[in-house]
Design a protein around this nucleic acid. Structure first.
Lengths: 229, 229
DNA sequence: GCTAAAACCTGACAAAAATCATATTCCTTC
DNA sequence: GAAGGAATATGATTTTTGTCAGGTTTTAGC
């Protein structure tokens, strides 16, 4: 296993690529490699973070507890994502909790490395800014979808998103398998409604299932549904 | 009217306060003061912006058109806000359109000023980053509210938000008067539903109205409703 | 102050989604 | 491979919300 940040491919996908060689070296010396098992938390909502997590492998769901007691997944973070950046930069407690959706490999990077580099390396600051700007745009899109689309459309969209971002296995099933309950809290609906709609999609030939694994059978059909036909 | 950025109080509320004197001077020389009448657009969704808008007075709604043809207001920008920062920094077309909710006074600042300063002044970059981090957190909260709260709760919350952020006039009415339709597109609901719920709130003594003007009569009641009682 | 247009309001109905209850299947663990 | 628990599935019902269709009031412009 390659253990130096300088040679880590994952870095290409995130803001760390804008760091200088020396800065990266410091990060690499300070970082702590960690394995997190499926279902285990990286951190809880309201916690103060001492650094950020760079995802080497696996997927984490970032969610927030609503006053009605239900969890809402705000984002899925996968290979290359840097988790906790927002709170570390703002110097605030986290507004989200992070839980591993499958087995993960992550590197913890102390906040000093991040904050120092931000102050000294404008290239890096601007790169982080670009990433954050992108996240903000995505968040705007989610807001519009949540408020203007039906549950059926949002579920269809979720499957297309999963296929696009995590791909499929050899048999064509979605590579990232989420429980129906997780899908519900991504989409923001009751678990029963989610299951019901998945059944409906099966009957209509949009999806095929095998246990909890799901395969998209009619991508175009789903896309049309999202657009509102 | 004070026309130099260096002396503009509005600047205290936004990221421009982290600029140096010389940088600010350049901004001041380059900026263009503008008045925008109620209902007029600052820019449209999908447009490429040549700079950002600093709000001196008035309020603008930032909204996005959904595929179902309805507008969703994502944010209300008021005195001190800098509009268009996200797209200018990401170098992308705007994902939102901006329309004046009441008469506005704004300063247009060319993007070169912003981008140059970002590259040269880390203090400024970090300050912008902090603001963007804050916006991102707010967006997360909106996502959770949209998906987990009822329309009734969201409307109650909207009024509390309006009172908190824009205050009340001498008679106690909300200082920012939005049409029922605008409220609907903030909350993400049908105009009729919005009107119906406002009527209900009146009957229950939470609100009082006079024409389109609205006064919060029972703040605590509204708060409890938002919490889910 | 008059008038037209826009905004607001209300009722009746339909559709969407949540909730509650109860099967059934799947998957782990012994 | 059997037992038990968790996840998935489905039915019945209620609640919430949207839509359509008509009213009334307010507001802006002359």
């Amino acid at each position: 296993m390659e253990s130096r940040c300088e040679n880590c491919i994952v870095r290409q996908f995130n803001s760390l690529r804008a760091m200088s060689k020396e800065e990266l070296k410091k990060v690499s010396d300070a970082k702590v490699f960690k394995k997190v098992k499926k279902g285990e938390p990286l951190f809880e909502e309201g916690q103060k973070l001492d650094g950020v997590f760079c995802v080497r492998d696996g997927v984490s769901k970032l969610s927030k507890l609503s006053t009605n007691g239900k969890d809402q997944v705000v984002k899925l973070a996968t290979k290359g994502a840097v988790i906790g950046q927002r709170s570390v930069i703002a110097g605030e407690h986290t507004n989200l909790s992070a839980v591993a959706v499958n087995d993960m490999e992550i590197c913890f990077v102390p906040k000093e490395n991040i904050l120092n580099t931000l102050q000294k390396n404008p290239e890096y600051a601007v790169e982080v800014l670009r990433h954050m700007a992108h996240d903000l745009k995505e968040a705007d899109d989610v807001i519009v979808n949540m408020s203007q689309k039906t549950v059926k459309q949002r579920i269809a969209e979720a499957f297309l998103y999963l296929q696009q971002n995590f791909g499929v296995d050899k048999e064509g099933f979605l590579a990232l398998t989420l429980s129906r309950e997780d899908i519900s809290s991504v989409v923001g609906t009751a678990t029963e409604s989610c299951i019901r709609i998945i059944s409906e999609f099966k009957k209509k030939g949009y999806l095929e299932t095998s246990g909890k694994r799901i395969k998209i059978a009619d991508e175009k059909g789903l896309q049309e549904l999202v657009q509102g036909f």
